[in-house]
Structure formats: C-alpha cells, structure tokens
C-alpha cells in the first residue's frame, strides 16, 4: 500500500489568459498519504489543486497540457466524466460554507442528489461521515439544528463530513484551517491523520508548520514551478534547494 501511486502527474502545464501558471509539473502522489503543498501566494498551489479534480474546467481561458493520471487513467481523457471524477475527488475550501439547512441535510445533500433515497442508508452515511470528521460527538443530539449555528471549526469539519459523505477516494483541501483557532486546527489535523488510512489527501497550506505537522510528503511551489518534492522530514530538516530553505526558514533576499 505504501508505494501505490494514486496520482501520476506528467509534465503538467497550465496556461491561464496567456500566463503560464503551472510549469512542467511532474510528481507522483502516493495513495493513503498526505501531500502538503506549500509556497507563497500566487505560486500555483491552488491552480494545481483545482486541476486535480478538473475544477479549472469552468474557466474559459484555461489551457492544460500534459497528463494527470488517477489510478493510471487520464483525468482529461475524452470519456472521463468530470462529475464522476469529482465524486472520487472531494474538496474542502478555505472558507467553510454550510448550506442553509440542518446539519443532517447538509450531509445528505450530495448522496441524495446522486440518487440515494433510502432513509436508513442516509442515516448511516450521516453517522459515518460525522464520525470520520470527528464531529459526531459534538452534534449527535442536534442533527436537525441549522448548520449555520455551528462554530467556525465545527462548520469546517461539517464541510469535511459533507465531502466524506460522497465516499471519495481523494480529498483535496485548500487552506482548510486558515480561519480557525489552534484547537479547531488541531482537530482538523487529527482528523486528516486518521482519514489518510482510507483516503489520499492533498493539502494546500500557507502555514508551513501545518505541512510539517501532518504531511507525509511536501511539495514546494514557487513562481508556478515545483521546486522541490520529498518526504516532509527531509524537506523541513535538510531541504535540497536553497529556495526551499529560504521559504521554510522565513528568509528573504
């Protein structure tokens, strides 16, 4: 399991409105691992993340070259259905946006849309998803309460649970803790470490310390290029590239 490759990215180039926003990215993302992606703002982290589940398809002025293989299959192949792809690859964004509905209805929204109507099955999904996101104990007695009444940290874990409800294989997270306090952040990080047993996780974070804490492997992006990629323990102790070292040690010049 340890050496299984979930994503194989081969010479990926992304152009957006004439700008070259991802330059020749090649890397393997291991299954059941957490990949932390770090780098300054505008370095291409989020574009890369959104490319993995084809969220960039919505952009009209985007051009993508190169290959992204999920379990050996090209996600840009003509026969690949983006909706089915996004079922396999869930995403959690920086700002938790619960639907204006109860906690229960937030979780079942996706499964219901995909055709599950059996009440018992939906109940099971709600319990499993909330437990996996480490939110169950805090909300089990108020599932019918509006999700809007949850705290920021709880809302983010609800969004994680909502993603898990679709039983994806990969979870993409774009700055999931940027607005959270240290305790909520710790809860999310703990959840991610547990979830990697069953999922492959790609975490974009501006908090390098967060990548150091949770990621198995870390990739450093700078000016739309992948500068360095390797085991987190190595990247944070003996980085191979001076640019990586300057970034993670907070240097400039």
């Amino acid at each position: 399991m340890e050496d299984t490759v979930k994503f194989k990215i081969e010479n990926l180039n992304v152009y957006w409105s004439g700008s070259h926003v991802l330059k020749s990215i090649s890397m393997d993302i291991g299954a059941n691992k957490i990949l932390g992606i770090i780098g300054p703002s505008g370095s291409g982290k989020t574009v890369f993340l959104r490319t993995l589940n084809r969220l960039n398809d919505m952009e009209l002025q985007i051009r993508i070259e190169g290959g992204v293989l999920l379990d050996g299959k090209d996600i840009f192949a003509p026969g690949m259905d983006p909706v089915m792809l996004r079922k396999k690859i869930g995403m959690v964004f920086a700002l938790p946006i619960p639907l204006p509905a109860s906690i229960y209805n937030n979780i079942i929204y996706g499964p219901s849309l995909s055709g599950i109507t059996n009440k018992n099955r939906l109940d099971e999904i709600v319990v499993k998803s909330l437990k996996s996101a480490f939110l169950w104990d805090e909300v089990k007695d108020r599932l019918k309460t509006s999700a809007m009444r949850l705290s920021g940290g709880q809302q983010q874990r609800l969004c994680l649970a909502r993603t898990l409800a679709m039983e994806p294989e990969v979870i993409l997270l774009d700055e999931p803790c940027s607005g959270l306090d240290p305790i909520s952040t710790t809860q999310i990080e703990y959840a991610l470490k547990e979830l990697k047993k069953n999922y492959t996780i790609v975490l974009v974070t501006n908090n390098t310390k967060q990548a150091a804490r949770v990621a198995d492997n870390t990739a450093f992006f700078l000016m739309n290029e992948l500068i360095e990629y390797g085991p987190t323990g190595t990247i944070f102790t003996v980085p191979g590239d001076i640019r990586t070292m300057d970034y993670i040690t907070g240097r400039f010049g």
């Binding site: 390098t208 150091a212 944070f236 102790t237 003996v238 070292m245 993670i248 040690t249």
Partner: peptide, 8 residues
C-alpha cells in the same frame, strides 16, 4: 519553531 539550517 525553527526548521532546516536554523534547527540544525
């Protein structure tokens, strides 16, 4: 919370 060369 130093890293890399600072930690070393």
């Amino acid at each position: 919370q130093p890293t890399a060369i600072d930690l070393r």
